[in-house]
């Protein structure tokens, strides 16, 4: 449907293909597929780079990491065992080879503290983090859609000014400050919600996740709202919006297909960045509310220098971001033809 709408020329990076100026394109599934294929290759390359970086973490430790970890308890046997477990024996290439083949087989090593497989612990803890991020995202959208629509359509200068200042203030407040302040007001003063802890079953866990999700969702929601508002303003100025108006389409249909749907693409295109910001927020917010997700797992491992855990969680975080980035790029190319010309 939107495939037959006129494409608009965008400021293009130097290597991008020339914008298509024909007014009525035939549906171009192959071109979209080709684009998605290219992005997939790119995503695989970046994922490989992410693995290199996670691999490098132990190797940039100043001095000998094994000596640092063992300290005075170092005996030749123990040094040898630890060296092997951290993949520090042999040449760097063979170290990377053995580490990577383990990773590809799903073996991220074992924790130095508990000797539990890292992947197993991540599997246990990931659901909490995903719940937190998912709820945060829902909360962000609940904030962003009305704010973005109002901001995009209003002509009130007063609203624009106060929204500008308010959103800047909320983005400038990091999630751990929001989290601690929410804890103070709703947990300690009003005693409406629990200050820490978690229950694993579905409706009950919401009680524990509500405050953390708000802390994660507020800044993200403001960023969403700003992008959506800009995008709606731009879309509103397009000719096809006028055409829709002239055709006299029913209001809900008009708002969705001509206003919201073309404006949503930039928000979806931002998803990779947003999920990254959400993961970073989850790391601190889990600490604030003592939630046993992968954020607290990473932080504890960093403070104890538990390298396999740090490498494993870093790889997991990077991998999630790369996958989401790829998906969001592909989806925005599918739903908005204007996004396809951007390389």
């Amino acid at each position: 449907m939107t495939d037959s709408l006129p494409t608009r020329s965008l400021p293009l990076p130097a290597e991008a293909p020339a914008p298509d100026t024909r007014v009525f394109d035939a549906p171009k599934r192959d071109r979209v597929l080709w684009l998605i294929g290219r992005r997939l290759v790119r995503a695989i390359l970046v994922a490989w780079g992410v693995s290199l970086l996670a691999f490098a973490i132990v190797r940039i430790v100043p001095g000998d990491p094994v000596a640092t970890l063992l300290g005075e308890e170092a005996t030749p046997d123990r040094v040898e065992v630890l060296r092997e477990r951290l993949h520090l024996d042999g040449s760097v290439a063979s170290q990377y080879g053995s580490w990577m083949s383990d990773v590809l087989r799903g073996d991220l090593g074992q924790s130095l503290q508990t000797t539990r497989p890292v992947l197993e612990t991540i599997g246990d803890r990931l659901p909490i983090t995903l719940w937190l991020i998912g709820l945060g995202m829902v909360f962000a959208l609940i904030l962003a859609i009305p704010l973005g629509l109002i901001g995009g359509l209003t002509r009130s200068n007063w609203y624009k000014q106060s929204f500008g200042l308010g959103s800047a203030a909320l983005i400038a407040t990091p999630p751990f400050v929001t989290g601690v302040l929410l804890l103070l007001v709703f947990g300690v003063r009003l005693r409406w919600l629990p200050v820490a802890g978690y229950v694993d079953t579905f409706p009950q866990n919401l009680e524990y996740l509500l405050l953390p999700a708000v802390a994660v969702g507020v800044p993200v929601g403001m960023i969403f709202a700003i992008v959506l508002q800009e995008s709606i303003r731009e879309t509103n100025a397009e000719e096809f919006v006028e055409t829709g108006l002239v055709w006299g389409l029913a209001k809900p249909q008009f708002v969705w297909r001509y206003l919201l749907r073309p404006s949503v693409a930039p928000v979806i295109g931002l998803m990779g960045y947003i999920v990254g910001a959400n993961l970073a927020a989850a790391v601190v917010v889990e600490t604030v509310f003592n939630l046993e997700g992968i954020g607290t797992y990473l932080v504890r491992a960093v403070l104890a220098r538990d390298y396999p855990v740090v490498q494993g969680t870093l790889f997991t975080f990077g991998f999630i971001v790369v996958v989401v980035h790829f998906l969001s790029d592909s989806i925005s190319a599918l739903i908005d033809p204007r996004a396809r010309t951007l390389s």
Partner: peptide, 19 residues
């Protein structure tokens, strides 16, 4: 692209494990 694909806080805290 690889470095930017990590959120600042996460990649820096991982490097703190090294430094």
């Amino acid at each position: 692209e690889v470095i930017n694909s990590f959120p600042t806080l996460i990649i820096v805290i991982a490097l703190v494990a090294a430094f």
